[in-house]
Design a protein around this nucleic acid. Structure first.
Lengths: 338, 338
DNA sequence: GGCGGGCATGTAACCGATTACATGCTCAAC
DNA sequence: GTTGAGCATGTAATCGGTTACATGCCCGCC
């Protein structure tokens, strides 16, 4: 390992000068600067990150704690985060935790001291406990957390609004039996989408039967199985709102296998607008959330906290969720542009 | 920030003892151990990662350098990597590079000293140059790289075999005009899949016309546009092999908009078997690659290198790619199980 | 009773950077 | 010619751990 001392010796200067050259300090003559640069390159020197962060107390790292890594949602999210972080010279440490309190605590523990800030997505209520144990000096941005958590910045998606809009759309199309495939129990996003669903039904004067709410867990497989059940129900719902796109995709597949046509026999809507939603057959009516933007905003906010300390007022930002009408619910003449 | 010294003082022992307690050294009396533990917990002590890795020369971090982060492929890959790493107490640093040599170099630079090893996926030929500049002491596992690179372990997918199998399958079904939607130019996986395609055609005595090979870039949008072109071609291909599933999904969507039925008017096959492939309509005939396993294997190999030094023989591992016949090409009576 | 082995614990060097402060030089102003 | 400002550079403390080696104690054995 070639260290700053090796470079200093070879360039016949002190370590301080080498350090100054690498950090762009102005007080170095051009000739010295050039000499140090040349030697450093020749020796293949690159500063030891651990040593540097030990003395500067900065790591240039951001921790990203996710409940899961399954599906297109998370790659989009990470993409937005990485892009923003990279632009500002930060790198990201990704850890997934399955939303279990213990695992979250472990992951946070393993990230401590390696990052200057944390983006935590833990939609389970109560899952933020381990976050509170963090020293107050670590900036944190919460993603899709249940309700504003006092003392933390947070960004969330307007889940209830989006869900209300889709279900209203469905009701407006004349549907009276509208089922929902829920997300995981104890998941904030799922709960909010369910709330929007119920509100829209109430608005429309519809009382959902008990069989109209079926369980799921945000995976395509769970949507498939849920829809299989719905297809056998009597009376059958004429429309289904799946709490995310992955489940909607599974549901469409199951309905089709059961011999039903979409949207003629059953309308299906999703949530998220993952890239592939528009390429389904029929193209999926869903709620658009700019997932990578969600990641980008969270990162920008976090970097702001990291740079300016935590003095600012904590805010909760709500990302709009807008209805995208395609063809899986009917009610749309033209083809959605790709 | 509470440091080891604070704990030592409060527990009335030396820093060495505190360190020993935290590292599970056996030479500490139970009473001391308990006292130190209690104090550490009360003070909320957690060792500074930078300081620790400065003196141990270990970081417990693995760098993951990816060409991109778009689509389900990457979340699956990261999932496999994270799972294996976490089990062994490592955490991962993810960076994407868009496959540009300069960005790769920058990313590697920013990872240096923060990780004990690197998983690099850079399918562009020549993209590994920056990797060679790494000090030989950093273990590296290459993913889907062009050909075995001397001096490095690598894991790749049997791209050509898989592609040959699908195209053979298509030819076996009686298709004579089989088009391909290519992956990005200068991408190894794409090139290999193209090679398999050509070999299978040659085997079947088919000479592809120039219009049968169209460009794409592995995104669903590019598959959509490519298929739009194919749909207008005369004579039209009766089968299309898309070099990955995302493009196959886009292609199916485009063909359908052009009024063609799948598989009756045109058969479509993909590559990767992303989770959602089986839920498409019709379920996609594709080539199964266990993506998260690919990540898991790469990680296991890397951890092995990290633990045992680099003395072992470098190996290239080839992950099988097996044909999964569903319905998008016909030739399959039953419904694919989900 | 003295000696030595083994064990718990402490002292201090070290890892590789950053940076406050010290040093010494040049040059302009008086 | 002296003085001091301003700048380039060096010296050494520091960040928070780990660990080789030193120390001192207890205990068993001859």
């Amino acid at each position: 390992m070639v260290t700053i001392k090796d470079v200093a010796r070879a360039a016949r200067v002190s370590v301080a000068t080498v350090s100054r050259v690498h950090n762009g300090s102005p007080n170095v003559t051009d000739s010295t600067r050039r000499r140090v640069r040349a030697v450093a390159t020749k020796l293949g020197y690159s500063p030891n990150a651990a040593a540097r962060s030990l003395s500067t107390r900065k790591t240039l790292g951001l921790g990203v704690l996710l409940p899961d890594l399954y599906g297109e949602f998370y790659s989009e999210l990470i993409r937005g985060i990485d892009q923003t972080a990279q632009q500002r010279g930060f790198h990201i440490l990704v850890a997934s935790s399955h939303n279990a309190k213990q695992e979250i605590a472990a992951a946070i523990q393993s990230l401590r001291g390696r990052v200057d800030g944390l983006i935590v997505m833990a939609p389970a209520p109560g899952a933020h406990r381990p976050v509170r144990d963090l020293p107050a000096s670590v900036p944190v941005v919460l993603l899709n957390c249940p309700a504003p958590v006092a003392g933390y910045d947070s960004i969330a998606v307007a889940n209830a609004d989006g869900a209300r809009d889709v279900v209203r759309h469905l009701a407006g199309l004349g549907h009276r039996r509208i089922a929902i495939i829920h997300g995981p129990p104890r998941n904030h996003d799922a709960a909010e989408r369910a709330r929007g669903y119920r509100e829209a039904l109430a608005e429309a004067g519809i009382t959902p039967g008990p069989a109209d709410e079926v369980a799921g867990d945000f995976t395509d497989g769970s949507g498939y199985r849920a829809a299989l059940g719905l297809a056998r129900a009597a009376p059958r719902p004429t429309a289904v709102f799946a709490a995310n796109d992955a489940m909607a995709i599974g549901a469409v597949s199951a309905f089709r296998e059961a011999g039903m046509r979409i949207p003629e026999d059953v309308a299906v809507a999703g949530f998220d607008d993952i890239p592939m939603a528009r390429y389904m057959h029929p193209p999926l009516t869903t709620v658009r959330v700019d997932i990578s933007d969600l990641g980008a905003r969270a990162t920008a906010r976090l970097l702001d906290l990291v740079a300016n300390g935590k003095q600012r007022q904590k805010r909760r930002e709500l990302l709009p969720a807008v209805l995208v009408v395609r063809e899986s619910c009917g009610g749309h003449g033209r083809t959605a542009a790709p």
